[in-house]
Write a protein that binds this DNA or RNA. Structure first.
Length: 428
DNA sequence: TCTGGGGTCCTAGGACCC
DNA sequence: TCTGGGGTCCTAGGACCC
């Protein structure tokens, strides 16, 4: 058979994925940390959410509770950072900006990865991948890996291969049947994009250990045991595209904001303060995508890890009389919901709000009995957003929002080097 | 003492209708 | 007493992703 090429080699998908993204972002402004172990922790410095290669090599697992890793961190002089999403978001958009120079069809999949549709009939995809890496690295300073193949799922797999085999120089192209089979035989089922813990377990039960084993199964078997989701994944692994590229970003269908507290809250006033910030954040994100929500949901819960204490979880949702993106209006309803589900006697460690049934702003149907001056509210929100965008988040807030960020613990926060005037680096 | 946050899609099952 | 066979819509929860 030789190295028979795929029929549609002229149209391929590249997946560019940033290596250890948050850790790499933190390193950007701290060159002394290059080749040193760097670790980023979740909200409240609770658990590990990003690790540089050196930290992975130390055996620190993703999601590991930080307090359990303290010894390893101390012993190996690991640089620890609290999450700094404004920084990561800004670096991400710079990376995406560079990537958009390589294609007309950029599908930004997450904060640290994007699919690129490549249509090049005689091009050397491996060389092209190398030049993508090189430019992102030079212009933004973030290391990446590139996987190229016929479908998204295969591109993901190619990327995985590129990450695991350093001799590939960060780029792997699957463009022949042989390379595809080789990758499929190498990949364990739990490494396939779309196959999670549950499905992988089930597959092992049926003796399916590798991606190659999986594609050998009949469509009907896969459909029956792993639903249409599994079947799509199988087809994608065989080079039949089932996931199309999303050319323009679509608005979110639901938006949620919630935080775990660093200390327990027992009274409703404390929860209300937190709720006010979360509602503001949700409403702001709605306004940013020019949409309104028709449904809101509020939930509270106690610390589920403390089995020795009384546990409580509850949520309540409601449909708004008129779809809204106004912070003050949504907060009014959210407080009512919270009042309904709040009970004294529990130590709460989390409250959250989710808005859903989101529609474009211009499609909002008025209500005959609406007493709210929506034009005025809209202008007020606009003014608030302008002040916060210029002066930094939190420059102006609702009266009921807490003044300090006292409910969260972020002891190792890096500056917002690129998004806050006061945090810009000074070169002397 | 200390265990994240934010999304999407699919399915099963119930309510309801003819 | 027996107790069909569709269809639709909605919701909760599961699985998965980063």
């Amino acid at each position: 058979m030789g190295n028979r090429n795929f029929r549609y080699k002229g149209s391929m998908i590249a997946l560019v994925d940033c290596n250890n993204f948050y850790a790499s972002c933190e390193r950007l402004f701290r060159p002394s940390l290059i080749n040193k172990p760097v670790c980023v922790l979740s909200n409240n410095d609770g658990c590990v959410i990003a690790r540089s290669q050196e930290v992975k090599d130390l055996g620190v697992k993703m999601g590991a509770p930080a307090f359990k890793c303290k010894e390893i961190f101390d012993k190996n002089d690991v640089a620890i950072f609290s999450t700094n999403f404004p920084l990561y978001g800004d670096i991400s958009s710079r990376v995406m900006g560079v990537l958009s120079q390589f294609t007309n069809e950029l599908d930004v999949y997450s904060i640290d990865e994007a699919f690129l549709h490549l249509k090049m009939y005689d091009a050397d995809y491996h060389q092209y991948g190398l030049s993508i890496r090189e430019r992102v690295n030079r212009w933004v300073g973030i290391p990446t890996c590139v996987g190229v193949a016929e479908t998204k799922t295969l591109a993901k797999l190619a990327n995985h291969v590129a990450k695991k085999f350093p001799q590939l120089k960060g780029v792997h192209v699957i463009d022949t049947i042989e390379k595809r089979d080789k990758a499929l035989k190498w990949a364990k089922v739990d490494e396939i994009w779309g196959i999670g813990r549950k499905s992988a377990e089930k597959m092992r039960y049926y003796g399916i250990l590798t991606a190659y084993d999986f594609v050998q199964k009949s469509d009907s078997f896969v459909r029956r045991h792993f639903s249409v989701v599994g079947l799509r994944t199988k087809k994608e692994l065989m080079g039949i595209p089932c996931f199309t590229l999303a050319n323009q970003p679509t608005g979110k269908k639901s938006i949620m904001t919630s935080r775990t507290f660093a200390k327990y809250v027992t009274d409703i006033d404390g929860l209300n303060e937190a709720l006010a910030s979360y509602v503001s954040s949700c409403a702001y994100k709605l306004r940013k995508q020019s949409s309104c929500a028709q449904t809101i949901m509020v939930f509270v819960h106690t610390n589920k890890h403390r089995k020795d204490k009384p546990q409580y979880y509850n949520s309540q949702s409601m449909n708004l009389p008129v779809a809204s993106n106004c912070s003050t209006e949504i907060l009014g309803y959210a407080k009512e919901l919270l009042k309904n589900i709040f009970y004294e006697g529990y130590e709460y460690n989390k409250v959250g709000v989710m808005v859903s049934n989101i529609i474009p702003q211009e499609q909002v149907q008025g209500n005959l009995f609406d007493k709210i001056d929506r034009g005025k509210h809209g202008r007020l929100m606009q003014v608030m957003d302008n002040i916060n965008e210029y002066g930094g988040r939190g420059s102006i807030r609702l009266a009921s929002q807490s003044y300090s960020k006292g409910l969260s613990k972020r002891e190792s926060l890096s500056p917002e080097y690129t998004t806050k005037w006061s945090d810009i680096l000074e070169i002397r």
